[in-house]
Structure formats: structure tokens, C-alpha cells
Design a protein around this nucleic acid. Structure first.
Lengths: 125, 125
DNA sequence: CCACTGTCTTGACGTCTGTCGAAACAGACA
DNA sequence: TGTCTGTTTCGACAGACGTCAAGACAGTGG
């Protein structure tokens, strides 16, 4: 993992306009790559990709852990670990309301990742 | 890594229309997640993200290993390993022409990943 | 045919990751 | 207060990953 021994400073990928020249138009600088790669890495696990989708597509924009966990054949701690990974990657926010904890997606970050991957319509080689 | 012990069958993510309902609109099924997650994982390393960008943004659409390697403080084998990862994830194609090997991006796959991450403009909650 | 250059594969090493069980923590309710 | 339910943290383990050095392979040019 490319010496990411850094403390994982919870980089603020949220700030709109941080980056996101389309990857195919301008070469991504090392600094930007170091910041964005963890977000892609967080989505690089099938369980987390589904979790992210379940949270982002939830009716009221948020999903309870109690709804998420039963959807997988995994233990509570494992789901909690994956959610922590998504949280540390800046992809979701967590909020405790009474007994349950609710997770909410951060659309700005998703938009940035999408913008980075955007490719011209056809380019016709 | 979530039992991805599967042989990594070089899934044909290329076929347009394979997937890619926006992640935030419809819950991603497990099957789709299993196919797409490796692509995100491949982009989850700063070096590979830069390699991908250098290849995708290259002038004639392709980049020679001889141009890629000197851009990093890494040995040839290491770069080769990362390129193999991108290849196995279906993100790039390789072609040998004479002495040099050229890598070329696969825009269709990038478009699919971008589509998956696409979020409504603002949603205004 | 034989060197030489460029690229890839192999083998090895330390680190990180995904998973679980057990235990700790936070709120709700009686 | 005490107990119960839901969630996270801790400790541990097998397996995967990133990196390199050494060797193998492919093409070029003498």
C-alpha cells in the first residue's frame, strides 16, 4: 500500500473545488492522488460498495446500522469496521440519535470521484 | 479482502450497459459489487491512480512503460506489477510494438465507474 | 549467432486488511 | 440503580498487498 503510513488525517475531501480535473484530461498530481486514492480504496471492497450504495440510496438519505447489518452474512463488528473505513475515507458521516446510529452519504465527495473518472463522450479515438 | 479468492476471471466490464445504475439511486446488488469493486480497488493506490491518469491523458491515447517508470521513485518490476493490476482490473490494455510496450486506457470502464458514482446535482435533501 | 536494452515474472519480506469472538461503551426502559 | 439492546473497540489470525532483487523473456542491432 504505497507507504500510506501517514496518520490518515481525515483529509477534507469535502471542500468543493478541491480537485477533480478529469483523470483523462490532465495528469493527476501525486498530491491529489495521495488524497483521492484512499476514497477509491474504501470503495474497493464489495461489502463497502454495497454499504455505500445502501446508505446513499436510502429513502431519507440516511441508513441505520440496524438495517445495514442484517443484509450481510457478517458479524456486527465486521460491518462496524467497514463503516469506520468509509467514515475515515470521508465518504459517509455518522450520527447517533438515541439508541441507533445513522449513516449519511457525503454527495460532494462522490461527485468529485465521479468527476475525476469522467471521460469525453466518445473521443472517436 | 472479502473472499475475493475467485480466479479473477478478467471480468468483461467493458460491455457497455453492463451495470451502472447510479449508486445513490438504486442499491447495488452483490453481484455487481463483486464485479466493480476490484476496479475501484485498482484505483485505490496513489501510484496506480497516477499511472491511470498518465495513460488516459496521454497525447495519442497510449503511454509507453519507458515514459511511465521514470515518473516514480520505484523500480521497474514494481511499476510493472501495478500495470498488471490495472490490466487485470480491465482498466487498461497492453500492446507490445517492437521493443516497447504501450498501455491504453479503456474509456468504457471509466465511464461505467463514473456513472455508478454520479449523484443528482443537489437533491436539496 | 551473439550481445545489449527494455520489459515482465518469480521469490521473498514486512505490512496492511478482512474477519471473528470477547469485552467495553452508550442509551433506553423498568 | 440495574438490566437490556445496540454499537464500537480490542486482540488475534489467515490471507492479500506493495516493494524489491534476481532472473527470464522479447526485439534490436552488430
Amino acid at each position: 500500500m504505497s507507504k500510506q503510513a501517514a496518520p490518515l488525517t481525515l483529509v477534507d475531501v469535502t471542500a468543493d473545488g478541491f480537485c477533480c480535473q478529469p483523470l483523462a484530461q490532465h495528469r493527476v498530481p501525486a498530491e491529489t492522488a495521495a488524497v483521492l486514492a484512499p476514497a477509491f480504496k474504501a470503495l474497493g471492497d464489495p461489502v463497502r460498495l454495497q454499504l455505500m450504495s445502501m446508505i446513499a440510496s436510502a429513502d431519507n438519505g440516511e441508513a441505520c446500522v440496524c438495517d445495514l447489518t442484517p443484509a450481510f452474512n457478517l458479524t456486527g463488528p465486521t460491518i462496524s469496521h467497514h463503516l469506520k473505513t468509509l467514515r475515515e475515507a470521508g465518504l459517509v458521516d455518522a450520527e447517533r440519535r438515541g439508541t441507533w446510529v445513522y449513516y449519511r452519504a457525503r454527495p460532494a465527495v462522490l461527485r468529485q470521484l465521479a468527476a475525476l473518472l469522467t471521460v469525453e463522450p466518445v473521443t472517436a479515438s
